[in-house]
Every structure is written in C-alpha cells, then in structure tokens.
C-alpha cells in the first residue's frame, strides 16, 4: 500500500519534470500530442536537420522553424470528447 503511494508520488514528480512521460491511463491523443511536440522541438533543436528540411521545402530556415513552432500548438487537433 505504502509502496503504491510512493510509486504514485514518484510518477507525479517525474511528470512534473518531464511532461512527455506517461502512465497506464494516458490516452492515445495525449501521447500523440506529446510525441508530435517532441518531434517538432527536436527538429528545431537540430539545425542541420532544419537546414535539410528547408532546402527540401524550398524556403528559408526561419520559416521552417516557425512552421514547426506553429505546429506544436495542438499538433493533433483538440482532444476528443471523453465519453463518460
């Protein structure tokens, strides 16, 4: 019992630190949102990759970066209504 409580607390602490971590009750939408955000953040964090993409898309790097940033807002659309 106490163990369960502790794991719960640890998980909460972990999630405070790392937003992208999940647990058994994470919905698919939450998770995909997280991984999409992680992806876009990662692209922006790797300049060579961003450079490569911009060349491929035929636009300047900053524009691609901005696109990535924009897409981080609701990358998978709004959360589906929960059925209760």
């Amino acid at each position: 019992m106490a163990d369960k409580l502790r794991t719960q607390q640890q998980l909460e602490a972990l999630q405070n630190k790392y937003v992208g971590t999940g647990h058994a009750d994470t919905t698919k939408h939450e998770w995909t949102t997280n991984i999409m955000r992680d992806s876009y953040a990662s692209y922006q964090g790797h300049p060579p990759l961003l450079h490569y993409m911009s060349i491929g898309m035929g636009q300047c790097i900053e524009r691609t970066r901005k696109q990535c940033m924009d897409k981080m807002v609701l990358p998978c659309g709004p959360a589906p209504a929960t059925e209760e």
Partner: peptide
C-alpha cells in the same frame, strides 16, 4: 507515426 495512426510528420519525409 504515419498515416495509419492519424498523425503525420511530413517534414521528416523530405528527400533531396
């Protein structure tokens, strides 16, 4: 990610 999961990351499929 990919079409089947409903989310796509088009940027990553850029090929030069």
């Amino acid at each position: 990610v990919g079409e089947e999961s409903g989310v796509t990351r088009r940027e990553i499929s850029v090929m030069i």
